[in-house]
């Protein structure tokens, strides 16, 4: 049964009666239009509830207990390393997406298509040399920042009691970051890439029992070729970005819930 629309409040009348600037009027019109269809107010209310009801903090804060506010600032650079790795990750993602427009993972030809595309990016493409440089350096910086971040966490004992889980997630993240670096290292398909890949296959084969299976799965065979490059490419641009982004979100979410382990 169609509800009688006359029962509804006449919002257009209400709008015309009010004295509004054009900006306010546009805003209210859009808001009312969207709210009548999506009931945004429900979501806003529940967000507000969340904001007031969930106290996303550990009950005890060390800075408060020992009055360390005035001593915190000189530790700040060390405590910004996590942020630094996220920023580097974002820069790498943007420059990587732009590089992805011009790269193709194919070993056909001599030198291979992949190698030719990198040469093209570095010599012919406008800003291509800069783009590749930025991508590579942001990756290097990310790895360095992640390592230093881990050292900071170790030396201030931040991995201890309530934060064991986040430490383990961090170990997973650093391994995924190294895998990111490794798969990216193989993509230009130059001599270094090829022989680094060779070492990778041999490492995979040396794993007891599972070795051959792992080598098949990750490298697409026991000798390097098109399948290897294809897999490294998909790992680098599809699998790892989703995995790493998700795990980073969980990692930071837990930091949000638990608070930062302050130095003392």
């Amino acid at each position: 049964m169609t509800p009688d629309l006359k029962e509804h409040y006449d919002y257009s009348k209400w709008l015309s009666e009010k004295e509004l600037t054009p900006l306010e009027k546009t805003y209210l019109t859009i808001l009312i239009w969207a709210d009548q269809r999506l009931r945004i107010v429900d979501y806003l209310e529940s967000m507000e509830n969340l904001y007031y009801k969930i106290n996303m903090q550990m009950p005890r804060s060390h800075t408060e207990q020992y009055n360390l506010d005035n001593k915190f600032w000189y530790w700040y650079p060390l405590f910004a390393l996590g942020t630094f790795s996220v920023i580097a990750y974002i820069v790498a993602a943007i420059s990587g997406a732009l590089l992805g427009f011009y790269y193709s993972p194919a070993t056909a030809g001599d030198p291979s298509v992949a190698y030719n595309q990198i040469t093209y990016i570095m010599t012919d493409l406008n800003f291509g040399f800069m783009l590749r440089s930025i991508h590579r350096w942001s990756a290097q910086v990310m790895v360095a920042a992640v390592f230093l971040h881990m050292l900071r966490v170790y030396f201030v004992g931040a991995y201890k009691e309530p934060r064991e889980l986040n430490w383990i997630i961090g170990i997973i993240l650093i391994s995924l970051t190294l895998m990111f670096g490794y798969t990216g290292y193989l993509l230009p398909w130059d001599q270094l890439s090829f022989w680094a890949g060779q070492i990778g296959v041999e490492m995979a084969l040396s794993i007891p029992i599972l070795g051959e299976w792992v080598a098949q799965l990750m490298f697409g065979g026991f000798s390097l070729g098109q399948a290897t490059l294809q897999r490294m490419y998909i790992l680098h641009v599809f699998v790892l970005p989703f995995a790493v982004t998700t795990v980073i979100a969980i990692h930071i979410g837990i930091v949000w819930m638990q608070g930062i382990a302050e130095p003392h």
Binding site: T119, M122, F129, Q140
Partner: peptide, 13 residues
Amino acid sequence: LSAVAPPHIAAPA
């Protein structure tokens, strides 16, 4: 860093 020390590429595989 990327302006000062851009990467280069080795010989093809």
